[in-house]
């Protein structure tokens, strides 16, 4: 009997990019790895230390595909990766897992992306998807906020985002900062500032859960339907394949049934604190 489901493949870190304080993007090269769709995640294994679930923030196809994983040093495994893993080092990798953003189902729609902090990571492949298939989607709006300017991810790409045709790209930070000329306040405030055609818009949201709830409720108020608002949720994900039971949210296994859910599907659960 094959017991390979939980076995990692050997990945090689080919590049490490400093994104923000305690946040780095690890480019991991691996052979014969299925192509992840936007919003899916991989499980990275640091030998002897443990695994951590990280969304794929970019994918470059090839004989050896390269996937980017943006990691914040916050727990025991991510701290280890941050401190010890550099270009040339190995990381175990398995995946891709979970249900990603249903971007293909919404061709022809206006696309609205709302990201908060490190929550931009799983949204990044969506931006690429819209940008590369520009004629397949309507108006593109990206709203991205972080605590401080320095906490923003993928700063080296922000100009490119702004050059996407027929788009609105707005950034926000939580508190005033001398270097900042953009909006100060919550990223969800920006929802009030953009033009939306609710009947023809699909929204993809990722950030802290409170922010996602506020964003979703605002979008509903602006006339979007709850089944056109998608969130990428975080829970304690361990196995990634729905067998360890850690990530349950109501009857969902976030790793297997998610991490991306329509707001309609999870709204009743998210409304109850600690469910």
């Amino acid at each position: 009997m094959a017991l390979g489901r939980l076995l990692p493949k050997v990945g090689r870190v080919v590049k490490v990019v400093d994104e923000a304080p305690l946040v780095r993007t690890y480019h991991v090269e691996v052979e014969e790895f299925p192509e992840p769709s936007p919003g899916q995640f991989n499980v990275l294994y640091a030998k002897g230390m443990g695994e951590v679930v990280i969304s794929v923030s970019n994918y470059v196809a090839g004989g050896k595909s390269v996937m980017e994983h943006t990691v914040r040093a916050i727990g025991s495994v991510t701290n280890y990766i941050y401190a010890k893993i550099g270009a040339g080092d190995q990381l175990g990798i398995r995946g891709p897992y979970g249900k990603g953003w249903p971007i293909r189902e919404f061709e022809g729609y206006d696309v609205l992306i709302v990201g908060g902090g490190i929550g931009l990571a799983p949204l990044r492949p969506l931006i690429k998807c819209v940008s590369e298939g520009r004629d397949r989607y309507g108006r593109f709006t990206l709203l991205y906020g972080a605590r401080r300017p320095v906490d923003m991810l993928y700063k080296y790409e922000h100009e490119e985002y702004g050059r996407i045709p027929d788009s609105t790209v707005l950034f926000s930070i939580d508190a005033p900062h001398p270097s900042w000329r953009g909006y100060v306040g919550f990223v969800t405030d920006l929802i009030d500032k953009v033009k939306l055609e609710p009947a023809n818009t699909v929204a993809f949201v990722c950030g802290p859960e409170v922010m996602m709830k506020v964003a979703s409720d605002k979008l509903l108020k602006r006339g979007l339907k709850a089944d056109r608002v998608f969130l990428s949720l975080e829970r304690r994900c361990r196995c990634g394949v729905g067998i360890c039971g850690s990530c349950q949210l109501g009857h969902y296994f976030v790793c297997k049934d998610g991490p991306v859910f329509s707001y309609q599907d999870v709204k009743p659960y998210l409304a109850v604190r600690g469910l």
């Binding site: 939980l6 030998k47 002897g48 230390m49 443990g50 695994e51 196995c239 360890c244 039971g245 850690s246």
Partner: peptide, 19 residues
């Protein structure tokens, strides 16, 4: 059925994963 993973290592380069 819930399980947690336990990772251990030794200094000879061996690592073990259990649940």
């Amino acid at each position: 059925f819930c399980t947690e993973f336990i990772d251990s290592a030794d200094l000879s380069g061996r690592a073990r994963r259990q649940r």
